[in-house]
Design a protein around this nucleic acid. Structure first.
Lengths: 207, 207
DNA sequence: CGGGCTCTTGACGAATGTCAATGGGTGTGG
DNA sequence: CCACACCCATTGACATTCGTCAAGAGCCCG
């Protein structure tokens, strides 16, 4: 999605601090956003307070474009973030004029769909321990650290709501991995000591 | 996706019986398919035999197009089905020539993504009873029966693997709804007696 | 140094999975 | 046409996993 840049005249730069609302749940969809730096979460609340996190967005990721008329998910900053914003109507116009860009958008949508589908199996069929291990593997891949030290941007509560678990279960899962010597844990700092054991614990058939 | 028809020269019609394999998991992606009649499921297996169903496809639905190089999910017929098949490379060509079709594809991908995301919250945060009620409501909407009689095409095992539950839990959930007078059950025939109670039981914030 | 976070751990309970037995329908072959 | 067998659905008893509630520890910031 780097070619978003060529519509530069229509881009607005924005900044948010920690834990601020970027998009309200259910509001009318007008803009989409690309993360320049920092981390954003998409959030959906049920009436009784249950919370679910649809995605964590990192530098380069785009959100808010998959929407229909309204945003089904809210978007909030996890860390301080810098964003670029573009009007959805402009995005559509550009896609109409520029074939290559339209193709890019379509492929991006397909990739997102594949990613989301593989999360379904995680939530539908994996145990708590497997979800946690998969999550750490995912984050290591996405944060792109060749080193084995992960600096997670999000809290345990965010992890829990992303994985369909509770805070306590996430803690226990991390502690188990620690006991087995697979990782070392210090708050949001995770040292991966045995990557193969981590992959095995996540039991990901693909990736 | 009805405009698939205008590439008629490249369409192949296919038929399958009950429980046949249409696409093998992990095979190279060459074609995509549209359901003409009947029901198809997409399936993913973990090594230890756990099974997950990604989607049920009904008449009009398209599958196999969201793929990268290989199909992450297998596709199998639930009932006897009639399908139309088109080569993915042809689909891309048509999208390159025809703006409107490219836009259609993109919007279809976005709609699928939104649907899949709302399934994440179902698997991540809903109880067994809520999942079952949501499923029945979904099927009623998709089968488009104005009457309140549902003829489910799939077995309890399929429902369970779609909802991230076991067969037994699905049965118990249906029995509970029956006890409350919300539905009547006879195998795959479901009579919805109290649609409002069903919606409440599913606690869907959107839709 | 103290207050308020978040994280961690333990004890317990509830929801769901597992294992097993039974029942009811459907299809097939006699 | 009937009988049997098989498959699927259902139900019960029990086990396990995960959530809930509660307490305490560590850390960050004023």
């Amino acid at each position: 999605m780097d070619r978003l840049g060529f519509a530069a005249a229509h881009l607005t730069n924005l900044e948010f601090g920690r834990d601020e609302e970027i998009i309200a749940q259910g509001c009318k969809a007008a803009f989409c956003y690309q993360v320049q730096s920092g981390c954003v979460r998409t959030v959906r609340l049920l009436e009784d307070g249950r919370r679910y996190i649809g995605a964590f967005l990192l530098a380069g990721d785009v959100f808010g474009w998959e929407t229909g008329l309204t945003h089904d998910f809210a978007a909030e900053s996890v860390t301080p973030v810098r964003l670029r914003r573009i009007r959805l109507s402009v995005l559509d116009e550009v896609a109409d004029r520029d074939h290559g860009f339209a193709t890019l958008l379509r492929h991006y949508a397909q990739a997102q769909l594949r990613f989301t589908q593989s999360r379904l199996i995680l939530l539908g069929r994996k145990t708590a321990a497997e979800r946690i291990a998969s999550f750490l593997a995912e984050m290591q891949a996405r944060l792109g650290t060749r080193t084995r030290l992960l600096e997670l941007p999000m809290s345990r509560a965010d992890m829990a709501d992303y994985l369909g678990l509770t805070i306590e279960t996430v803690c226990r899962g991390l502690s188990d991995l620690k006991r087995h010597g697979t990782i070392a844990v210090n708050r949001t700092r995770i040292q991966i000591q045995d990557p193969q054991a981590l992959d095995r614990a996540g039991s990901d058939p693909v990736h």
